[in-house]
Simulated scan of single mutants.
Amino acid sequence: MGLLSAGLFWERRDVPGAEQVRLTDRDGLYAQGTVLAAAPVGYACHYELQTDPGWTTARFDVRAEGAGWTRGVRLELAAGRWRVTTSEQGDLDAALVAAGHARAGLPGIEDPDQLYGAFDVDLAGSPLTNTLPIRRLGLQTKGDNAGVSHRLSVAWVLVPSLEVVQADQIYTPLDDGRIRCAGETFAADLTVDDGGFVVDYPGLARRITPGRGSS
């Protein structure tokens, strides 16, 4: 793939943490990123994401690791079907219980056919993955289709467990150029740039220009 010259950085607002990603979006999206967070346990999450030219997810490799444990998941979409492979070492549950949290689900998903009809991955806590449906549906074009809601199914990857679940989401472009992202238990009005990349996700993260503070 060569050098990835574009880079983005977000500061988390829900927990101490950040996301840094290098990418190219010349022919779909190729991205390599890292998410760091201090809760529910301290972890680093490294991912590699590839879409097709129409911004449908083709491959998503993600690895989460913390003290005494590591987990990995690969999701691949071809001909409308998802393939999910997983790996696990150590004991994440021990770390969670010691921190006063419930045990984690297993990495991956037992029946990948539950993801049928999903074209996007959504990594929990990652503003980068919100760009996938925005670009795939062309929602970043300000003023076009304002108020028109798009209901979609996503492959939601929970962290740090890397459990994969099917989730329904609704994306709605607003008159002021923001994009509302909503699910069963949340709603947020996202500020995005002309490329559809999140600048501000209220309550979750805000993009930072290194050396200049918030963009």
Rank of each mutant, 00 (worst) to 15 (best):
T85N: 07
P53R: 12
R151F: 00
L96S: 04
L152T: 03
S153P: 00
V97E: 14
T70A: 15
A95C: 03
T56N: 09
G100K: 06
D52T: 14
P127K: 05
A98F: 06
E110W: 00
R151M: 00
V62F: 06
A95F: 01
Q89Y: 00
E48A: 12
L128D: 05
L96Y: 10
N130E: 09
D120V: 04
L158A: 14
R74S: 14
A104K: 06
L139K: 02
W156S: 05
S149I: 00
E110N: 10
R74I: 09
R63L: 13
S126T: 10
W156R: 13
D93W: 01
L128A: 06
N130L: 08
G72M: 12
R135D: 01
G100P: 08
D52I: 08
V154Y: 03
G143K: 08
S87G: 09
G105A: 14
G80L: 08
G108C: 07
E65G: 04
A99Q: 06
A94M: 05
H46D: 15
H101C: 11
Q140V: 04
T129L: 08
T51M: 04
D91F: 02
L152R: 04
H101E: 15
R83H: 13
T51D: 07
T70K: 13
A146S: 15
T131N: 01
G108E: 01
S149W: 01
N145T: 07
A102M: 12
A155K: 01
W69H: 01
V154P: 01
H46I: 13
P112K: 12
L77F: 04
L75Q: 07
W82V: 11
D144Q: 13
L92G: 10
T70D: 10
G143S: 09
R103V: 14
D144N: 09
E76G: 09
N145K: 13
A79R: 14
Y47E: 08
Y116E: 14
A104R: 04
A79Y: 02
V73F: 11
A124P: 08
A94D: 08
P53K: 06
A102E: 15
G66E: 11
L128C: 05
T56R: 15
T51Q: 04
A146C: 14
V73W: 08
G105H: 08
D144T: 11
R135G: 01
T129A: 09
L137M: 10
A94H: 11
H46W: 03
W55H: 10
L152Y: 00
G68F: 04
A155Q: 07
E76F: 00
P112S: 11
G143N: 12
L139M: 07
D93G: 10
L123A: 02
V121P: 05
D122E: 13
V121F: 04
V154F: 00
